[in-house]
């Protein structure tokens, strides 16, 4: 087994809980990684200002998939303002650490969530 990623990153990469398209989402955020050409879509469901469900679709490296999973998990249960405050550091903490060259993948996940929230606000 690779030691490049932490156990927690590998777990989320191999068995992500929050992947999949969401039908009837209230907000959708599509982002691409200008650096390596990856694609990520984040879906959210919002009720009374609170994110009740989140999911993702990611074409990218193991770190991108793992951080997509983390961002969805962290977003669920927060209201949209709180969700916007999720930081890269908090996410990386959940994975223990990320190789330096992979830190940008976590910002992609945050960006995806932000875009989904933006989309929700616009639709309101």
């Amino acid at each position: 087994m690779s030691n490049y990623y932490t156990k927690e990153t590998m777990k989320r990469f191999l068995e992500p809980k929050y992947f999949g398209e969401m039908k009837g989402a209230d907000g959708v955020g599509k982002v691409g990684n200008p650096k390596c050409g990856d694609q990520m879509t984040v879906y959210i469901k919002v009720k009374d200002g609170k994110i009740t469900d989140a999911s993702f679709q990611t074409l990218g490296c193991a770190a991108a998939i793992a951080t997509s999973d983390v961002v969805c998990e962290m977003a669920i249960g927060r209201n949209t303002e709180e969700a916007l405050k999720i930081t890269q550091e908090e996410m990386i903490k959940k994975l223990e650490k990320l190789p330096a060259v992979k830190v940008h993948c976590s910002s992609l996940a945050i960006e995806g969530l932000k875009k989904a929230i933006d989309d929700y606000e616009k639709r309101k």
Binding site: Y5, F13, L14, L59, C61, A62, A64
Partner: peptide, 14 residues
């Protein structure tokens, strides 16, 4: 197509 090589490689490595 429809996959990314790094994640493929890491998954095979596991």
């Amino acid at each position: 197509p429809g996959t990314e090589g790094e994640s493929l490689m890491i998954a095979l490595d596991t």
